[in-house]
Design a protein around this nucleic acid. Sequence first.
DNA 1: AACCAGGACGTGA
DNA 2: TCACGTCATGGT
Length: 230
Amino acid sequence: MLKDIYTWLLDNYGPQGWWPLVTYKGTNPTKTGALKGYHPGDYSFPHNDSERFEICIGAILTQNTTWLQVEKALVNLKRMNALNVKGMKKLSVGKLKEAIKCAGYYNQKSKYIKEFSTLFSNLEKFPPTRAELLSVNGIGEETADSMLLYAFGVPTFVIDAYTRRILLNLGLITADAKYEDIKALFENNIDNDLIIYQEFHALLVEHAKRYYNNKNVTKKCPLSTKFGKN
DNA sequence: AACCAGGACGTGA
DNA sequence: TCACGTCATGGT
């Protein structure tokens, strides 16, 4: 069932190339958001610690905001040479807030980022454990799993509000399903494959943006007729 | 112009 | 454990 959904999504939308990284025009950092700015079908990313760090910062910044806003914040940070641990640690909290203001919740996110940076630089080895990530204030289950999956190459499934919404609409979960329940549902039914895990989550987000863009589902989800239980 | 976005935390029951 | 308020900007 879930595998069939994955196949349908991949066939219809193609590889998403997550996690998006900041791209350049010449030497000038511009965007990540455009599809061409991703790296669809190339699963070799991230290539270095700087990219790993960038993904983690993006994971914190994207909490309850759109990627469009996150992208602007990331570009600001990149231009300040702060999208790597050393640069970030040198950046004052004031400058940090200024740079990420567009992504919202800048007071708390600036703390989260600073605290995460300390953990990142203190890590003896990659990948960190899930518990280590969760110990940082501001890193919850989804953010931790996103970091593990996209920054550190650990095949762990990411559950977000969109995923929950889709599965609920399809009747595959009930409203009281917890994060761990939904995560287990995927991990017990999908091959433990890094590429599939990365792609599946990204595809669910893309699908949800098309059909579940507000809290009361209005548009007809094409998955529901094919795979829905009701 | 109200509604909401790729959540997480602190609080009180 | 769990429900609920809070955090904040900017696009649609």
